[in-house]
Design a protein around this nucleic acid. Structure first.
Lengths: 153, 153
DNA sequence: CGGATTTATTTCAAGCATAAAATATCTTTG
DNA sequence: CAAAGATATTTTATGCTTGAAATAAATCCG
């Protein structure tokens, strides 16, 4: 590829990044806003509940932090609040007195079912401009980026 | 479109959203990390400096908040910190004693030039898996989403 | 066994982000 | 002109996020 084409591709990638960021921020803001106004909750709490909903037997704090790719201290705070709401509970782990297992309460499971359904509808509406085919193509491009990023890390 | 195809498209859009979010979070995290370790600064400060660099005559606080789509109070804090670093300055606006104009200092302009060049290189490397053509196509898809979102708001 | 290291979690300080309230000033309008 | 409303900014309270330090418990290994 020529030097000029390289330079052009670089500028295009920068523009793509800015647009990607803007779009994902806009969608995220819409989701946060609806979670707050319609259900009085937040995206981080939703994300933790989603992870817990997938593993009914519970997850250790460190597992939760690893899966969500956020710091340990962050998870501590979010689980504190979910626990205060009665949506999650910590339990001692048999055989390791350092560890804590977190799981959804019955109330938490019921609440999450409602949230998840609304969330799926919102996303579907927000991304209504994308067809099934476009979505597939973008996903495969993003997979390439993710694999590349993974290697670099 | 059949009911089944509709359902399938909905699930695909949800998967796309999760992937979009994950990718953009990963790239953003890499940029934050480099800004912090290599330059001791942050993405919000970079964003404010980028907006100010585009308008050398300065911007009012409210203009800045509108362009970056963040709250007024948020801009207050970021500009406070940029000012403390000596990278930006507030000036009274002639004819409106409520308003403040913010602009980069000479040191701020010099610092931002360095940051912006590194930033462009990082983005280019992080998105290296995307070709010029793919980038163009994804951007036009994202434009469709953005237009759609704009209407809904 | 017992000291050194690793692992699991929490705490802490700082910054970012929001919505809502507070201030101050400008503009409109009766 | 004066009250009412609009606009510009800051302050406040709350929550999310991180990296680094602090605790506590488990594991390793000489």
């Amino acid at each position: 590829m020529s030097v000029e084409a390289q330079l052009r591709a670089g500028k295009t990638r920068l523009r793509l990044w800015l647009k990607l960021l803007k779009t994902s921020n806009a969608i995220e803001a819409a989701l946060r806003d609806r979670l707050r106004t319609e259900f009085g909750t937040t995206l981080p709490r939703f994300d933790v509940m989603a992870a817990l909903a997938r593993t009914p037997e519970g997850l250790k704090m460190s597992e939760l932090s690893r899966r969500l790719r956020v710091s340990n201290g962050n998870v501590t705070g979010i689980v504190d609040r979910l626990e205060a709401e009665g949506h999650a509970e910590r339990r001692a782990v048999a055989g390791d007195r350092r560890a804590m297992e977190v799981r959804l309460t019955a109330a938490g499971r019921a609440h999450f079912a409602t949230l998840a359904e609304a969330h799926e509808d919102w996303v579907n509406a927000l991304m209504g401009a994308i067809t099934e085919e476009e979505a597939q193509r973008i996903m495969s491009d993003l997979d390439a980026v993710a694999r590349d990023l993974e290697e670099k890390r």
